[in-house]
Computed example of a mutant assay.
Amino acid sequence: MKDEVNSQPVKLVIEHIKKQIAERRILPGERLPSERKLSELLQVSRSHVREALQKMELYGIVKIYPQSGTVVSEFSKDQLDTMITDALKISKYDFSSLVYVRVLLEIEVCKLCAINRTEEDLENIEKTLFELEEKFDTELRVEKDFAFHQAIAQGGHNPVISSLLLIITPDILKYYQKYKVCAVPQKTVHAEHREMLQKIKNKDKDGMKELVLRHLSNLIDFAKLSTKGEIPEFEYGHI
């Protein structure tokens, strides 16, 4: 319930900007009011304004220029309206749905990375894995874990899938940190990550689906429990 309450100011900011664009008070390519002005106008904190703008930038609706302000993207009014509607919908998705999508994407990016990765990609993946193993027993564990998986996504060289993972990551992170989902023994996690890395090194996509499902099994089980039977059973057999 607390997460829903905290999301309301962010939604308010996005809906205000949507209305301004719909009424042509702000046109594509024009600059939005400053964070301070939006905060005062809508009676929300600047951190909520910032979160709303970052979310809209993630969807390509605006572009944030440090020290210069935020500019509306050069799309038509109808296109912007659709994009903002989608951005508002993401906050309504439940955790289990986000996990379902993450697992589907993770399987695909791991297979793509094994096929398409370059030596530079491999170096980046190894670097992020080293940092994760170093920070495994610290509060940075979850952040470093996602950095490792994002490096694999980038190595797949499909920017759409990589971007989709980035979009759903913030909401999944909230659950990770709130409910301590990553309660998997260190030895097991390291072994699975190393197995992924070895398959990517060898450009071996065979068995990657089974490896990813095994690696994320704790997360999948937690998501199933969180639904309390309200959604269908997870099914990944078609991939």
Rank of each mutant, 00 (worst) to 15 (best):
K2I: 13
K2T: 15
D3M: 12
D3C: 12
E4L: 09
V5N: 15
N6M: 14
N6A: 10
S7T: 12
Q8D: 11
K11I: 14
L12R: 06
V13I: 09
V13C: 06
E15V: 08
E15I: 08
E15D: 11
I17K: 00
K18N: 08
Q20T: 12
Q20F: 10
I21T: 08
A22P: 04
R24M: 13
R24H: 13
R25K: 10
I26V: 13
L27P: 11
P28V: 07
P28Y: 11
E30L: 04
R31H: 08
L32H: 06
R36Q: 11
S39R: 04
L42N: 12
Q43C: 13
H48P: 00
V49W: 01
L53H: 02
Q54I: 09
K55C: 15
Y59A: 03
I61L: 06
V62Y: 05
Y65H: 08
Q67M: 06
Q67I: 07
S68P: 00
G69F: 01
T70K: 03
T70C: 14
S73M: 06
F75S: 02
F75E: 05
S76A: 03
D78W: 04
Q79E: 01
D86H: 09
A87H: 09
L88A: 12
I90R: 08
I90S: 13
S91Q: 15
F95T: 06
S96K: 01
S97V: 05
V101A: 11
R102Q: 14
V103A: 11
V109D: 03
L112E: 05
L112K: 08
A114L: 06
I115F: 09
R117S: 14
N124I: 10
T128F: 04
L129C: 10
L129P: 00
L132H: 00
F136A: 08
L140H: 11
A147M: 11
F148W: 02
I152D: 04
G156A: 04
H157W: 02
N158V: 06
P159L: 03
P159D: 04
P159S: 05
V160N: 03
S162L: 03
S163N: 14
S163I: 00
L166C: 15
L166I: 10
L166H: 14
I167N: 02
P170D: 05
I172P: 00
Q177E: 14
Y179K: 10
A183M: 14
V184W: 03
V184L: 00
T188K: 04
V189T: 04
E192Y: 07
H193T: 01
L197N: 06
I200L: 02
K201T: 13
N202K: 11
K203W: 08
D204G: 02
K205D: 15
K205R: 10
G207P: 06
V212P: 02
L219D: 03
I220M: 13
D221G: 12
F222N: 12
A223F: 11
A223D: 11
L225Q: 12
T227W: 07
T227F: 01
T227A: 12
E230V: 01
P232C: 04
E233A: 10
E235H: 05
Y236V: 00
H238G: 03
